[in-house]
Write a protein that binds this DNA or RNA. Sequence first.
DNA 1: CTGAAAGCGCTTACAG
DNA 2: CTGAAAGCGCTTACAG
Lengths: 359, 359
Amino acid sequence: MALQSTIKDVAKEAGVSIGTVDRVLHNRGRVSDANKKAVLAAVNKLQYSPSQIARALVNRKSNLRIGITYPKVDSDFWSEIPAGIELARSKLLPFGVELLIDYTETYDVLDQIASIDKLIAEGVNGLLFTSVDDSSADQIERHIPENVPYATVVNPTASVSRCAFHLGPDDFLLGNLAARLISLFCGDKCNIVLLAPNYNFNGTQRRIAGVLSKISQSLPGLNLLKVMPVSGVTDEDIRSHVYASAKDALQMFPTLDAIYVSNGFFDQAALAVRDANLGGRVKVFGHEHTSALPELIKQDIVGATIYQKPAEEWYRAIVMLAELLSGTRTITAQDTRVECSIIMKETLALINIGSVHLP
Amino acid sequence: MALQSTIKDVAKEAGVSIGTVDRVLHNRGRVSDANKKAVLAAVNKLQYSPSQIARALVNRKSNLRIGITYPKVDSDFWSEIPAGIELARSKLLPFGVELLIDYTETYDVLDQIASIDKLIAEGVNGLLFTSVDDSSADQIERHIPENVPYATVVNPTASVSRCAFHLGPDDFLLGNLAARLISLFCGDKCNIVLLAPNYNFNGTQRRIAGVLSKISQSLPGLNLLKVMPVSGVTDEDIRSHVYASAKDALQMFPTLDAIYVSNGFFDQAALAVRDANLGGRVKVFGHEHTSALPELIKQDIVGATIYQKPAEEWYRAIVMLAELLSGTRTITAQDTRVECSIIMKETLALINIGSVHLP
DNA sequence: CTGAAAGCGCTTACAG
DNA sequence: CTGAAAGCGCTTACAG
């Protein structure tokens, strides 16, 4: 098979210089209509598409800087992120893309804005971060200059207008799936309690809504005893409140079969189950992966969790944003979807945890 | 952050020309010990790593040709492959990698060897194919010149020695998972039949072994009524035999709860269930995705399938082989593992079917 | 409006 | 054994 045609081939075919070809390709500068037409015809005839390789080599000179900020809170979920970021960094480095990383200690919107301001002050050409609910998304957007594109990860917020893309799972569907898993593991008829940490987050609310909707539509046997929002100032706070809430639930409802926790703090509920000696009797369901999970599954305390692979999610988001900014990619709806894996005893060994599956 | 250091920086640091740096980097030609040491020290000091971009640009000249052959049999599984191959082709084209595609009409080893001979005659530098069992893997290996590296996909065959890597799922674990899914969907106690098309394939045998092992170890309530190997000359043959076998099983065992089919032909068993008006009473389990699957799941005839994403699998295998051949990558154990998704009613909308999830 | 030249970081002949 | 030069396909100043 013949090699790809080059800009030189196009120039020769159109009878112009490669400079002119470049101009019509990227409409920079003025080109006569006749030449423009000739170039377009040549491009079409030769099926020309510019080499990303060569372009990348040149672009090393005009650096792209992407600012990233994430909540470095004390949980297994967020501790996976750096692996994804580092991989993205090493992949993008040869393309002259520089990653500026910052983080906040909390989910607080003012912290986030401070962090973003810092990145903007360093002259980033694009931003990636997490906004947890609509109002914070709005607030943050107003702080970002119009000429700095940005994208978001993890929690979807529909209200903002300038967000280039949002990468994340469909939390409502994850809630549907969670309800079904509970029904599969605990039987058609069972008593459940939902714990909802960070209830103000969009993602949390959509997951809970997904669970409720699934129950009312097709799992009438799931008897929902209580939905317990769990809040707290620090992540550590919330974790201990999850533990306490689970403990309360176990005492309050002796017939409890399952506890669903809408994020990665399921392991606190699992500890409560274990401490109450109810392992095997009450099953816990949740999201993500924690270091304690394999053991908790083995002990039959956790039934299953839904894992959204945060490292891979951030890696993809960063690469997508870089490609978007350099004009080498357009984003489609499918690209912004995040696939999740079901972690259970039989899939633990089948899933790559905490790493990015490449290419 | 500073840009990556270049070969020029290293040359200056070591006090030699860039030609010499290149020589020690790839040990081509002879270099004096003193210079070699100086270069290595400079590389180390500057954390130098060669730009794959620049290298790719040069390598356009010295083309790499990879030969690929696959069994283009009439099933949804194999029909997904071309999408993965085409994506790999477009990704590798700018790197000067050429893909030569051939296929066989059957799984027959002599057909495969003929196809591989054809590719070798065209001067490929590497080969990728599927060998279904140990003896065919051996036979094929003997037909490949020692200087042509190759890799295999889909069915693992442990007996060969020169295979660069094998990319595929752990079929034994998939069998374990299948057994558990049956137990989750149909209850702790139920009656099942296993249909094993292509029973001579390594992958098939390991899946069946995985199911049996899981049952005997932790699912004693699964009552295995019969294991039925299904064979035939053409793929179409086998499909109709699966239908017939399922029909037989349904008549033979009025108390049947579940049918497991060890590959993508589960939809034939599902048709037999539907035609016998046993939908909702007997559930079918299997592997992969077929065009009929969404409807069969909606009708509660199929419980779940385990999907190994063949397009993505081939895409990854091709890219890995290309990177291996061009010396820009080493393969680790983790790289050769294929993650599978569980397709069920609640995950259908969460999984990308038939396409490659990038980057 | 257009073309010729320099240069991105490498590799590959070619001289010495 | 070593260095200088040409060139991969593009983009970006620089002349005209």
